[in-house]
Amino acid sequence: MVQPRKNADAKPYYFYVLLCADNTLYGGFTDDLEHRLATHNAGKGAKYTRPKTRRPLKMIYHEVFTDKSSALKAEYAFKHQPRSAKLKYLTAHGVTF
């Protein structure tokens, strides 16, 4: 019988928000924040962050989750809001601009 993984051993997943050089916001998810930011800044990340006009990118917020599904849901919810709601969300979570 296979034993389920204990939460203490589970890999963390993150929802994160990047501030682009053109002052736009990008939300994503990952299991390695440092590597993902480096990938975006190298122009090899998401299609949205590839243009040179959007780089450099700065990580301004991240939130940790114990499962991939929850991180993906947070990303989806963030991306499907108008900019004003995104800014309100970030301010409510202690991000200052």
Score class of each variant (00 low, 15 high):
Tyr13Cys: 09
Val17Glu: 03
Asn41Ile: 06
Ala77Asp: 07
Thr53Ile: 15
Arg55Lys: 10
Leu33Cys: 09
Leu72Trp: 04
Leu19Cys: 09
Val17Ser: 03
Asp67Met: 13
Gly27Arg: 11
Lys68Arg: 13
Val2Asp: 07
Ser84Leu: 12
Asp32Gln: 06
Gly43Arg: 08
Thr53Ser: 15
Gln3Arg: 14
Phe29Trp: 15
Glu75Phe: 08
Leu87Pro: 06
Glu34Ala: 15
Arg54Ala: 04
Lys44Gln: 06
Leu90Phe: 10
Leu90Ala: 05
Phe78Cys: 05
Arg55Leu: 09
Leu87His: 11
His40Ser: 04
Tyr16Met: 09
Lys11Gln: 14
Phe78Gly: 04
Leu90Met: 12
Lys47Cys: 12
Arg50Ala: 03
Leu90Cys: 09
Lys73Gln: 14
Phe78Lys: 04
Tyr14Arg: 07
Ala10Cys: 09
Ala71Asn: 11
Glu75His: 05
Lys58Glu: 13
Val64Glu: 15
Leu87Arg: 10
Leu18Ala: 02
Arg50Phe: 02
Tyr76Lys: 14
Ala21Gly: 01
Ser70Lys: 15
Ala74Gly: 09
Thr24Pro: 01
Leu18Asn: 01
Gln3Lys: 13
Asp67Gln: 14
Lys73Leu: 13
Asp22Leu: 00
Leu18Arg: 11
Lys6Asp: 08
Tyr89Lys: 12
Lys79Ala: 05
Ile60Thr: 07
Cys20Met: 05
Pro51Ala: 00
Arg83Val: 02
Gln81Phe: 06
Lys44Gly: 03
Val95Met: 02
Leu72Gly: 10
His62Phe: 15
Tyr89Gln: 10
Asp67Cys: 12
Tyr14Gln: 07
Thr66Arg: 15
Lys79Pro: 02
Thr30Pro: 06
Asp32Ile: 07
Lys6Trp: 15
Lys73Cys: 09
Met59Ser: 08
Ala92Met: 10
Thr66Met: 14
Tyr14Met: 04
Thr49Ala: 03
Gly43Pro: 05
Ser70His: 13
Glu63Ser: 11
